[in-house]
C-alpha cells in the first residue's frame, strides 16, 4: 500500500528554491534512505512533510494515504501517523519528559479516536520502551531534553517514536552527534520498530548509519531533487565515490 506519494514538489524559503521537482513514493513496510550532501534539501524535505512553517510550497503535492498532507496542520499530520525524529530536538525547560510524553500521547490518542491511557498503563508502556533504550527514570523526570547529551536526545526521539505508534517515521540525521555505542542503541531501537505496516525515511549524510539500519531503497538528493535511486548497494557506491558525481548530474 502506498503511504506517501510526493509528486513534482517545489519548495522555497525566502524566495530561494530549495526543492525543485522532487518525486518520491514510499510504501508501507519499506525503509528508504535519503542521502546527499549538505544543502541538497534533505532536511527541508523532512520539514515540509511534517508541516513546519516558514516554507513556501510553490508546486506539486504530497499525499499521505491518498490525502493531501499539505492542507493539514502539523498536529493533524502527527495524528495521521507522520512522525519526525528531529536532527536537533528542542529543550523545553520546566516540562518533565514524562509529562510531555503523556500530554502528547493523549492528544494523539484523542485525535485518533482512542481513549486516554490510565496512569498505570502509561507508566508501564513508557518504562518498557525506556528500558530498551537505556533511558533512566531520572531522564524522564528532567525537563524535555534539558541537560541531555546528544545521545540522550536522540534516544528520547526514538522513545517517542515507539510510544506514538506512527505509520511513517522520518529520521532526520538521527546519527549526527552519536558515538558508536549510542548509534547501536538508537539503531536497534529503530529496527525494532520496523513492521509491514510502517514505513521509514532515513535521512543521513553518511553510509555508516545504513550498516545498522539497512534500507530497502536508497535515493541520492542533490540540489533539491532525487538524482538517483537504487537498492542498498547504492549507498556503498556513494561511500566509495562520494557525492561529486551527482553534483554535476544535477
Amino acid at each position: 500500500m502506498t503511504l506517501l506519494e510526493i509528486q513534482d514538489l517545489n519548495v522555497g524559503v525566502d524566495s530561494r528554491e530549495i526543492i525543485r521537482g522532487l518525486d518520491l513514493m514510499v510504501n508501507a513496510g519499506e525503509v528508504h534512505a535519503i542521502m546527499g550532501p549538505n544543502g541538497s534539501g534533505k532536511s527541508t524535505l523532512s520539514h515540509v512533510i511534517a508541516g513546519k512553517s516558514g516554507y513556501e510550497v510553490t508546486g506539486g503535492h504530497i499525499l499521505f494515504r491518498g490525502e493531501d498532507l499539505l492542507e493539514m496542520e502539523p498536529n493533524e499530520r502527527a495524528a495521521k501517523g507522520v512522525f519526525l525524529a528531529f536532527q536537533y530536538p528542542v529543550e523545553i525547560p520546566g516540562v518533565t519528559t514524562m509529562n510531555f510524553l503523556r500530554t502528547a500521547l493523549n492528544a494523539l490518542r484523542k485525535a485518533r479516536g482512542r481513549g486516554e491511557l490510565s496512569t498505570p498503563e502509561f507508566l508501564k508502556k513508557v518504562r518498557e520502551v525506556a528500558g530498551s533504550l537505556n533511558i533512566t527514570r531520572d531522564m524522564l523526570k528532567r525537563g524535555v531534553n534539558v541537560g541531555f547529551s546528544g545521545g540522550e536526545k536522540k534516544r528520547n526521539e526514538v522513545l517517542q517514536m515507539a510510544l506514538f505508534e506512527p505509520s511513517l517515521c522520518i529520521l532526520d540525521e538521527i546519527d549526527s552527534g552519536l558515538d558508536i555505542d549510542a548509534l547501536r542503541i538508537v539503531a536497534s531501537g529503530i529496527n525494532g520498530l520496523r513492521s509491514p505496516e510502517r514505513a521509514m525515511i532515513v535521512i543521513t549524510h553518511y553510509q555508516r548509519l545504513l550498516h545498522y539500519i539497512v534500507p530497502d531503497y536508497v535515493h541520492v538528493m542533490s540540489k533539491g531533487r532525487v538524482v538517483k535511486s537504487g537498492g542498498k548497494e547504492l549507498a556503498l557506491e556513494l561511500e566509495a565515490c562520494g557525492y561529486a558525481q551527482f553534483e554535476t548530474a544535477a
Partner: peptide
C-alpha cells in the same frame, strides 16, 4: 520559539496546548 512550537505540534499537541505547556514549564 517557532522551533519549540513546531516540535510540540509535531508530537500531536495543538498550538494552544503547546503554549500552555511551555508557559507552565516556564512558570514552574
Amino acid at each position: 520559539s517557532e522551533d519549540v512550537l513546531f516540535y510540540c505540534l509535531q508530537r500531536g499537541l495543538s498550538e494552544q496546548q503547546a503554549i500552555g505547556l511551555v508557559v507552565n514549564g516556564f512558570a514552574k
